[in-house]
Amino acid sequence: MAEIAYWEAIRRAHDEELAHDHMVIAMGEDIGVAGGTYKATSGLYQKYGAARIIDTPISENSYTGIGIGASMAGVRPIIEIMSINFALLALDTLINAAAKIRYMSGGRASCPIVMRTPGGTAHQLAAQHSARLARMFMSTPGLRVVTPRGPLDAYGMLKSAVRCNDPVIIIEHESMYNMRGEVPDEETFRPLEGAEVVRGGTDITLIGYNYSVHLCLAAADKLAAMGVSAEVLDLRALRPIDRDSIRRSVEKTHKVVIAEEDEATVGVGSEIISVIIEECFFALDAQPVRVHAADVPVPYNRQMEKAAIPNADDVLAAALKVLGRV
């Protein structure tokens, strides 16, 4: 068991899957000779060559479409889009093609692609580099959407995504690539479905995904110091949502906070609250509270950016409100 960085975990998954199956290729902007914006494919061009580690022009919609077309003929492409903001350019091929081809062909064709992309705010990248957009992909039938919170899932979910026969969207985070965590030395696959109880607790459930799990964990530490036992649930997959795990946790704690880095409108939190109401409304002792970004394009100014994006103290404050301690 070694402690490695998130980007190293992604790189290792690429390396193992490329070695395992000649049909696996990777494609994206600057992933080859330049080694990848976040180093996630560094050294692979030298190892596997230009035919399998493909540097693409800046044409997100069509290189994604090329990956989709190749996948229909047996290739397993791992497509990197440098920022989820740029994935908006590829929505036609991702949503109108990849997500629908299996269904509209009556199951006769399929698109086993993986699309990896970082979504999230980092350091003053401003409005066009700070979108999160997970909510848009999670509302699309025909896709799988996963949000690894650390190196283990970043590694093991990418490996599973390459083997899986469905189109899988992996949403990473610009602020997590250097985050470290333990990953087993032996080959490991992490499932693409199922939420995970990251920290057990009895008084309140804090639900997060991707980076916001870390906000929940930090808030749970502060709550513990105040004598409150918080359970932290990492959704891991936004599509499909693990309704059972949400219900089980709420039935145990009866109180919920949902932390999302995205804007709230028609978002992850609204979906989770709907799930709770449908699954276990009468288990609730208090009104659920969402912690979310301000409903504005992300500003450049450092102070304003900070104010727009939720932090651990916001999760703590929401928890105290749900607990009736304010």
Binding site: G65, I66, G67, I68, G69, S71, A73, V75, T93, A97
Partner: peptide, 12 residues
């Protein structure tokens, strides 16, 4: 939309 899909089939 079939332009890139066709190129992808050719890439395969």
């Amino acid at each position: 939309q079939p332009f890139p899909l066709a190129a992808g089939l050719a890439l395969a």
